[in-house]
Amino acid sequence: MPQFQSTKSFFLYVPADSPIHKLHPLTKLVIVFVINLISFFVMDFYGTLCLLALILILLAIGKVPLSLAKSFVMALLGIIQLIMISYLLFTQIPGNIIYFEAYVVLLRWHIYVSDATLLNAFTMDIRLVTLFLTTTFFLATTRDRDLIYGLRKLHIPYAGCLMFSLMFRSMSLFVDDYYIIREAMMSKALDFGKGSIAKRLRRYVFLIIPLMILMVKRTEEIAYAIEARGIPIRGRKRAVYHDFPLTAIDYAVCGVFVSFFLGIVVGKTYLGFNLGDLAFGIIQRFIDILRGFIK
């Protein structure tokens, strides 16, 4: 077995002794779900900033090192640039004009950049970062098996949970296979770092054949191993080995987050309340106080 694979969990899991780690996986799912949902209702700059602050606080409580996020920072930067550029080129959001240029190229296209355009683009970027961090938060504090416990607590049918579990198992086998095959190809004088992009891509096509063959073989073996232990796919009463009790703290945390969500939705639809306005107000007050202090 290759040893580069001794990650203890397939996810980004970082073992730590934090209150977050002690929460029931279902509670963490609720937190992630709520933050994602809220981001649909909070569109403005200050509101988004609030959500970002919230997830940063959660990450800090969970003792998750931010360096964990560095693996997808590059991909993220690309997307951020893309959002910026598309906002600058293709939107016309009314506001104080910063730059304007009219083009007539078949279509009547003109570039119109206002302060509102920039603010919107920036808000969009922050939302994206927030969502990425939320996922990181979940994966870093939850083991893959905990996710399955969480799913079972939600009464997801057994076949579904088993499927998830098998998926994680086969992913780690798949990664192992991938590396071994690559090394085997290198032993046959195939240099992965050389040649044009088209050539490089073709080499990866070669990889697929043994990967598929191994996968088909394994699938059969795994299926046999499961059936040999008397696992009917459906239709029989099963017992549940684990008891996954939700503690009072879990209920409390879920309660706080769900009411936070409801507060925002109800506030926004009926009371004209907006998280962003509140945050803006608070920041203004803070600046005022600071000014007064300086004077």
């Binding site: 083991r143 893959d144 098996r145 399955i148 088993l162 579990s165 098998l166 994680f168 198992r169 086998l173 394994r218 073996e221 795994i222 191993a225 499961i226 232990r229 008397g230 696992i231 009917p232 029989r236 009463k237 099963r238 017992a239 549940v240 080995y241 684990h242």
Partner: peptide, 22 residues
């Protein structure tokens, strides 16, 4: 490798037992 289907030892052994509805 391929007959270990769950994520922990305990779940692995319990898998068959759950089917007996004990």
């Amino acid at each position: 490798e391929t007959q270990f289907v769950m994520m922990t030892v305990e779940d692995e052994i319990a898998l068959g037992l759950e089917n007996l509805a004990l």
